[in-house]
Design a protein around this nucleic acid. Sequence first.
DNA 1: GTACTTGCAAAGAGTTTGCACATTA
DNA 2: TAATGTGCAAACTCTTTGCAAGTAC
Lengths: 130, 130
Amino acid sequence: MNLKKTKTREAILSILSNSKFPLTADEIFEKIKSNGNFTLSTIYRSLFSFEIAGIIKKEVSTDKKSVYSLNTPMDKHVLVCVKCHKKVIISGCPYHEANKKISHETGFQIIDHNTEIYGICPECLKKGEK
Amino acid sequence: MNLKKTKTREAILSILSNSKFPLTADEIFEKIKSNGNFTLSTIYRSLFSFEIAGIIKKEVSTDKKSVYSLNTPMDKHVLVCVKCHKKVIISGCPYHEANKKISHETGFQIIDHNTEIYGICPECLKKGEK
DNA sequence: GTACTTGCAAAGAGTTTGCACATTA
DNA sequence: TAATGTGCAAACTCTTTGCAAGTAC
């Protein structure tokens, strides 16, 4: 299972590492299609290979599309502003302690979790005050 | 926008209120189809009406299906067993304290959040030990 | 040369929609 | 009867797959 370096794959990884937020396959496609002869299915397949290899991670967004991002395990918590849709990544896991408690109470051995937190960012709060 | 009471809708609400866990449209369909002449598209449309009316809520599960449940705002935290796919609802919000801290650190006014926690349930843990 | 990648087109799953008919209030 | 709801089939979106040809190592 050796990943070969190809133009498509380099382009995909470059896009993902330059993006602050997870992207859909189609968004990636839109960004690179002008640079060469790319296909959506190839992008899906590349993303799949990367995922298996542990290089990227795939998540499901609220509109039911798959979104992909480099696998930086700590960036799993996203604050989403309901006004301006800005996303802020929270580093570290704020729920670590709470999860220990859940584990204790339910007997579940907790492996992972995903969280989206909705709120209003400081900028939009200020605007609202005016 | 007046919701009319029909056989389909009563059946759907009955199923949802008797279910401890969110259900997909198809799961609802499977459960009620023997009781009458129901259609998947009608179920989707009824679910949509209920959602607009605020009676139920729709969420996206990790396998990208929409799941529906009665709109009880407190049951937002689900423990999912990665082995047997059982879901356990955690009542109350275990992250309340942590969110206060996030709010303080980021300036966000937090409104809401959704969480899925993945783990292995006690039963599957036992099986694994054997 | 062998294994891995790709493009293309077609298939697949879940969901939505148009239309004519049926039902509720 | 006026407004809503339904069944059916077809359309739609995102994603996956089969196959033959191409490319990296």
